[in-house]
Design a protein around this nucleic acid. Structure first.
Lengths: 219, 219
DNA sequence: TGATTTTTGTACCATACGGGATGAAAATAC
DNA sequence: GTATTTTCATCCCGTATGGTACAAAAATCA
């Protein structure tokens, strides 16, 4: 059923490991780690219990694998969206568009960010999950920051712009999208938040008046 | 053990309902809804199973009660912090300080926001919890917006300031604090984010250069 | 004092849970 | 073909889970 390489003895696997991992992730995504049973996983992957155990270890190890898989996907998506051959504003817009597409892609309705939506709950009681989540958040901060620093060095942002601060702002926007989408906010509402948010990060384009303000207050 | 009013027949309660609810909330706060067992609750409240059931209903109803309790506390805290007898910037600072104090108040380490940290996970599979979470987020948006509108009308913000947009920004800052604290970020790191964030919302004070930028970008 | 009402405390139940034991199945190696 | 290796599929186990039955306890009312 699966591609076999010559020299591999034994009965071949009936599943593709990465596909199974993706399916397991989809199950965890909806119900969270504690809310998902191994029966849910077997139903979602088509794998039976011992195969699951043999391939990924116990339930917790399997979940940690899905977290890493999600991090890889996020890393790749972020890297692509933040490519330096496009203007900063467009790059950030692509990040948020891609995020929203992911957050609203669930079969059972919007499900938000997998990491924030599921690992956040477990973070108090599980130091490893907490560390993974924290590292992932930092990695996103760093990706934003590098791109913003590049934009500033290219003159796309004013010289007094502070990339670390702006990066955390960009992350905060992503976080609020992650939360609000899973909380049932319609996609259109979140999409409407993007332009004002981009105005704050990149500066408001001169061409037209838009919502939001970014100037120094009077008082 | 508990204050008895004349005219109440039957054996008196051995617990104070609101205290028990607070204790149950603390238990859910750390492990989430699915990750908490009724045994955990009985241990945390000192109540036995039938009393718990009689007072609050089943596990899900009890959790929904704790959500409402948290909303009440948050509403009160937000209202107090956003009082209109102080400058906008100070009011917002008080909101974030109060939030951080709450988010870092757990016995088992930082636990973030109860709503975001626990209800978010359950939001995909439970429409009522999702609705509660969404309403709570909107309520916070509205509180920020009202305070910002007042500030603008008082001349504390420029006339072109857009309260709804700024309110969502203020909420996004709260959301990122809620996430990052539970993800293990040290409190000092989050505290350092506050001044730049307040610069973005309220405008940067003239007196001194600080991190961040809020001016219109060159391009 | 005795009846009534309400809550408590123990013990229990059916089920769901995570995990594993065991033998059949399906491939290669000889 | 036979042996060996690896995976699959069924069945099972001990425990944890959410929820409840039932009687004792502790108050008021008459």
């Amino acid at each position: 059923m699966v591609q076999k390489e010559p020299g591999k003895r034994g009965r071949p696997r009936a599943y593709d490991p990465d596909t199974a991992l993706a399916q397991a992730m989809a199950v965890f995504w909806d119900a969270g780690y504690s809310g998902t049973s191994l029966d849910d996983i077997t139903a979602g992957t088509g794998m039976n219990r011992p195969s699951l155990y043999g391939a990924f270890g116990d339930k917790r190890a399997l979940y940690l694998h899905t977290l890493e898989r999600y991090r890889s996907l996020a890393r790749a998506g972020l890297g692509e969206a933040l490519a330096r051959d496009r203007p900063l504003r467009e790059a950030l817009h692509r990040v948020y568009d891609a995020a929203l597409s992911l957050y609203y892609s669930g079969d059972a309705g919007a499900r938000g960010c997998f990491l924030i939506g599921t690992a956040l709950t477990e973070s108090v009681g599980d130091a490893e999950m907490r560390g993974t989540l924290r590292d992932a958040l930092h990695e996103i901060d760093a990706a934003f920051e590098a791109r913003l620093r590049f934009a500033r060095d290219q003159g796309e942002l004013p010289r007094e712009a502070d990339p670390p601060t702006l990066a955390r702002l960009a992350s905060a926007v992503l976080h609020t999208l992650a939360i609000r989408s899973r909380a049932g906010e319609p996609r259109k509402v979140l999409e409407a938040m993007l332009e004002p948010a981009l105005d704050l990060i990149c500066g408001k384009p001169k061409r037209r008046r838009q919502a939001g303000q970014s100037r120094v207050a009077a008082r």
